[in-house]
Write a protein that binds this DNA or RNA. Structure first.
Length: 141
DNA sequence: GCCAACGTTGGC
DNA sequence: GCCAACGTTGGC
């Protein structure tokens, strides 16, 4: 199983909206970036991810699970763009802010810290465990 | 609201 | 195939 991080502006698609979709999940559409798309193509059902609010909150607020592998993005006719579906697993007890990540030496190489503009990115198992720790989860989700 | 970083586009 | 111009993202 692999770990990922999904960024969203709350005004565009919020964690509350994601949670409201329940088990059905929602397609992670609108990505128009090759790097981000390529990561989505690597995803498998059951992979886990962090849900991150960019711009205003700048924090990891929830855990999601991939529930459908990459398929054409229905929001465009352009065949280049694909997306996966994700569903909410749980909210985190304590949101982990970008500042928290920058301050933690375990996360100094995290993509979130070093490539601010990438909206879908991989997370290493060690980083996953460290962020879960900061989020107040006793065991990695 | 500004600006830095970065990706994409298009002219040559 | 290079590179300048431009647009977008996202932190501050």
């Amino acid at each position: 199983m692999n770990y990922w991080l999904f960024k969203s502006e709350r005004a565009t698609w919020s964690w509350d909206q994601q949670v409201a979709r329940g088990e059905a999940g929602e397609q992670w559409d609108g990505v128009r970036n090759y790097q981000a798309r390529n990561f989505m193509r690597q995803m498998q059902v059951g992979d886990r991810g962090f849900f991150y609010h960019s711009q205003d909150e700048k924090a990891v607020v929830g855990i999601v699970e991939v529930c459908a592998e990459a398929h054409p993005d229905s929001t465009t006719d352009d065949p280049r763009w694909e997306c996966v579906d994700i569903k909410a697993v749980r909210s985190v007890p304590t949101p982990v802010t970008l500042a928290d990540c920058k301050a933690d030496p375990r996360l100094e190489n995290m993509v979130l810290v070093n490539n601010t503009r990438l909206s879908v990115q991989p997370v290493t198992p060690d980083e996953w465990a460290a962020v879960c720790d900061l989020a107040g989860l006793n065991a990695p989700a």
